[in-house]
Design a protein around this nucleic acid. Structure first.
Lengths: 244, 244
DNA sequence: CGACGTGTTGATCTCTCTCAATTAGAGTGG
DNA sequence: CCACTCTAATTGAGAGAGATCAACACGTCG
């Protein structure tokens, strides 16, 4: 799987983004350095790295994470196709988190100053980047609410329904076929601040209640309403998003 | 306390920000609608509000928070003078979190489209807003790491040292006099995902160890090194910041 | 002076963690 | 084709960090 022009980017067909003029597309295209593939489980950016490039995720999932000195890991949020990687690290600062691929991942590469060029040449698109960044922040906010105040059962339910919504937004008929779900239970545990064992038990509990099923990397939601209720997720949180 | 021109803004003297040309200052000034005071404990923006303005905090502290339907509250991060309020809510979306004043607070008010004007007229400043937003995100990341993976003792230590650093950055001689600290233990508990009682006990424990002291709204750090170690806080996280 | 907010401390209770062991599938190599 | 190894998922049992319940102290305020 590979493509040459941004105009033909498969992501563009999903109408998740604001339309772009040929002019804007040409700009993005000119900034783009190329593509890379990163194998699953490997870091795209290391924790503390200070010379990271800018990436756009266009196939596969990834996640941002931080670790404590003794190895405890906290996953901050998950990245799906269309998301940015490395925006946080502006100027000369080091990135205070790492980014790791979940399964093989395909990226578009941009130079570090691409963001600045974008702002300069097309303020509107620069504006959108701010929007996207804020959008991602709201995901972290939600995860913090989970880790801080939700019970184990609520956390799992909330994570499943929220990830499901994001993944389903790029699929034609997610309801019937389920959505790809490349996380292991260890990832879920690290995202929610739970132990692996308790994550497993809670996951099974919800499964036995008939709310969902995870099978061979595919997540099926049987009762989205009940799951959202179990997770105390009311607002329709993250709707589509612009740019890229 | 009140001032008229942005050029005379007391915050500007702190060299926390990138210098601005008279031109840039004039732009900000022209966008500014006025100032408001919000009494302590009151919401600056309500959870779910969709018509919020844009604010700049220039005196007092505030915090962003989310709540679950049964009232459990999670504080997402604290806002100190110089921070933005309401950037997350772009376009027509509602804000998914509330912002509340900690003690009386003074704000500069901007119209909702000020950000857009800023981007358009001064891409460099718009760029800085993205930077600031990312900066704030890294604070939330750190808090998520705390809530998810740190023990109660580590959480408290990390919160204290991090808030101390931010507050001390605006004071001439924080080491000797301590820094203002308007949080109640309930705020600390809600920020760290702990119960009020356990927060109190842990706080006392660290205090008895001689690491810090909180007295009449002033935080004294006795052993910053040990506190940082106790909180597993290595990186010098959030250094100064630009703009405003 | 009683009501209220904040801080403090002791006594249970329980949710979640840690330790341990088992099963199943995917590779690998002989 | 079959041991051998590794990773991921499961399940049971005991332990513990932190929650909940209860009381009390202190200062402010109408």
């Amino acid at each position: 799987m590979s493509y040459v022009s941004c105009a033909e980017c498969p992501l563009r067909k999903l109408d998740l983004f604001t339309p772009h003029s040929p002019d804007e597309l040409k700009l993005i295209q000119s900034l783009r350095r190329g593509q890379v593939t990163v194998p699953g489980g490997q870091d795209i950016i290391h924790e503390g790295q200070s010379d990271a490039l800018l990436y756009t995720l266009w196939a596969g999932w990834a996640f941002r994470y931080k670790t404590l000195s003794d190895g405890r890991r906290q996953i901050l949020n998950f990245l799906l196709p269309g998301d940015f990687i490395g925006v946080q690290q502006k100027m000369s600062d080091a990135l205070t988190h790492g980014v790791q691929a979940l399964g093989d991942v395909q990226l578009c590469v941009f130079p570090r100053d691409a963001l600045w060029h974008l702002h300069r040449a097309h303020p509107e698109m620069g504006f959108n980047v701010t929007w996207l960044t804020a959008q991602e922040q709201s995901q972290v906010d939600e995860n913090l609410l989970s880790a801080g105040r939700r019970s184990a059962e609520e956390r799992i339910a909330a994570l499943l329904i929220l990830l499901y919504r994001r993944a389903a937004a790029m699929l034609p008929d997610a309801g019937a076929t389920g959505v790809p779900f490349p996380l292991t239970q260890q990832h879920i545990a690290d995202a929610l601040g739970l132990s692996l064992v308790h994550t497993n038990k809670t996951l099974r509990k919800l499964e036995r209640l008939g709310l969902h099923r995870i099978e061979q990397g595919v997540l099926h939601i049987h009762d989205a309403k009940a799951l959202a209720r179990a997770g105390d997720v009311y607002a329709t949180m993250p709707p589509p998003r612009p740019l890229v």
